[in-house]
Computed example of a mutant assay.
Amino acid sequence: MESTDLGWRALLRRQWPLACALLFFLGSEVLGEPSTWWQVPGSVVVCALAVLAPRRPFDAALAAATALAASSVVLLVADAAPAVPVVSGLVISETAAAMATTAIVVRQASPVRAAVAVALLVAVSAATLWVRPDYWAEQWPGYEPPVWQHAIGGGVLLVLSVGTGLYFRARDRERATAVRAEVVAAQHAERMALARELHDVVAHYVTGIVVHAQAAQAVPAAAGEVLPIIVHSGNEALTAMRRLVGTLRGAEVEAPAPAVAGDLADDVRGVVEGSGQPVRLHVDLPVAVPPSLGRSVLRLVQESLTNTRKHAGGVSRVDVSVAVVDGQVRVVVADDGRERRTAPVGGSGGYGLVGMRERVELLGGEFEAGPRAGGGWEVRASLPVGG
Rank of each mutant, 00 (worst) to 15 (best):
6 L>V: 14
6 L>M: 14
7 G>I: 02
7 G>W: 02
7 G>Q: 10
8 W>D: 11
8 W>K: 11
9 R>V: 12
11 L>C: 06
11 L>M: 13
12 L>Y: 14
15 Q>V: 03
15 Q>I: 04
15 Q>S: 12
15 Q>L: 04
16 W>I: 10
18 L>G: 03
19 A>T: 02
19 A>P: 04
20 C>D: 01
20 C>M: 10
20 C>N: 02
21 A>D: 01
21 A>R: 00
22 L>S: 08
23 L>W: 03
24 F>M: 06
24 F>S: 06
25 F>W: 09
27 G>I: 00
28 S>N: 12
28 S>W: 11
29 E>M: 14
29 E>S: 14
29 E>K: 13
30 V>F: 13
30 V>Y: 08
31 L>R: 07
32 G>A: 09
32 G>S: 05
35 S>P: 01
35 S>V: 12
38 W>Y: 07
38 W>L: 08
38 W>C: 05
39 Q>C: 08
39 Q>T: 07
39 Q>V: 06
39 Q>E: 04
41 P>A: 06
42 G>F: 13
43 S>M: 10
46 V>K: 00
46 V>G: 01
47 C>P: 03
47 C>W: 03
48 A>S: 13
48 A>F: 14
48 A>Y: 06
48 A>M: 11
49 L>A: 06
49 L>N: 07
49 L>E: 06
50 A>R: 02
50 A>V: 14
50 A>M: 06
50 A>K: 00
51 V>M: 07
52 L>I: 12
53 A>E: 10
54 P>K: 03
56 R>T: 02
57 P>M: 09
57 P>S: 15
58 F>R: 02
58 F>M: 04
59 D>A: 08
59 D>L: 12
60 A>K: 05
61 A>G: 10
62 L>P: 00
63 A>F: 10
63 A>P: 03
63 A>V: 05
63 A>D: 04
64 A>D: 03
64 A>V: 07
68 L>I: 12
69 A>T: 01
69 A>V: 00
70 A>M: 07
70 A>C: 13
71 S>K: 01
72 S>D: 15
73 V>M: 11
76 L>M: 11
76 L>K: 09
76 L>P: 00
76 L>E: 09
78 A>F: 03
79 D>C: 03
80 A>S: 13
80 A>V: 15
80 A>L: 06
81 A>Y: 15
81 A>P: 01
83 A>H: 04
83 A>P: 01
85 P>D: 09
85 P>I: 06
86 V>E: 01
86 V>D: 00
87 V>G: 03
87 V>I: 12
88 S>L: 06
89 G>H: 05
90 L>C: 14
90 L>E: 03
90 L>A: 09
90 L>T: 08
91 V>L: 08
91 V>K: 07
94 E>L: 02
95 T>L: 08
95 T>R: 08
95 T>W: 01
95 T>G: 06
96 A>H: 01
97 A>H: 04
97 A>P: 00
98 A>K: 03
98 A>T: 15
98 A>Y: 01
99 M>N: 04
99 M>Y: 09
